[in-house]
Amino acid sequence: MRATVSLWFAVAKRSFRRYSTYRAATLAGIFTNSVFGIIICFVYIAVWSENPGAGGYDAKDAVTYAWLGQAMIMTVAVWNGGATDDLAARIKTGDVAIDLYRPVSLLGWYLASDLGRALYHLLTRGLAPTLVGAALFDLRYPADLLLSVQFAIAVVLAVTVSFGVRMLVSASAFWLLDDTGVKHLAAIFAMFFSGLTVPLVLFPGWTGDLATVLPWASYLQVPADIWLGKHPGTDAWAALAFQAAWTIALLWLCHLVLGLANRKVVVQGG
């Protein structure tokens, strides 16, 4: 068990390092996230000056939400990418057979790798634009230490949920020759239903109720609401439990799908 944990740790570390070599790309990305953050802030400011209590947020909440959104885009890899893209590539080349015969869990291996990537993106493309936002706008910060800890947990769970979704998308490559279409579609859903294009709290009527129970709500809306203190007391734990439930459900589904894929590879030889 200890050996497995240290292996996952090593995998995560290697993945972190791998992403940290693209320095110019990271700087360019930070700049782009910051520009979008600023534009979205002014749009939200306009919305909340028309309707100061829209969605139960005030203008300060909304502006903070805009920057949290920019911070989460790459951390949860809304546009796909990350370890799951490596898997899709390896399915196409057939190298995945090697992964399937490794004595360690394929799911654990890729999850560790994706967490390493997410940490790198959080510290660079997450943190840097947030600092830009903090310098330019009046943001709200977690009220106490407990909220900060809960937010940190929420970010990790956001990554695990998004990993589960992306993993299922990539695994479709086992059956479809090309996963581009599915990936495209998945990215659109993720972008819209995570609340990145517009906060889920603004969705009218039943659409809002629906959006908040879908897995994508874990990407941004849940962590943001914890940060903003919208889940008082034990509600925050309930929100984390919601994310954890989706994580377990999705990883279990991934496990089943990879089992089927394994059988397919073994029987058909790829």
Binding site: V43, A46, V47, E50, N51, A54, G55, G181, H184, L185, I188, M191, F192, T197, V198, L202, F203, P204
Partner: peptide, 25 residues
């Protein structure tokens, strides 16, 4: 059609905002 729908969601986002306000700026 995919491209049509993706970019369409951008406009849906504006519609969502307008379900909360009557005008912007």
């Amino acid at each position: 059609i995919g491209q049509f729908l993706i970019t369409g969601l951008d406009f849906v986002a504006i519609l969502v905002m307008f379900s909360n306000v009557d005008s912007l700026g």
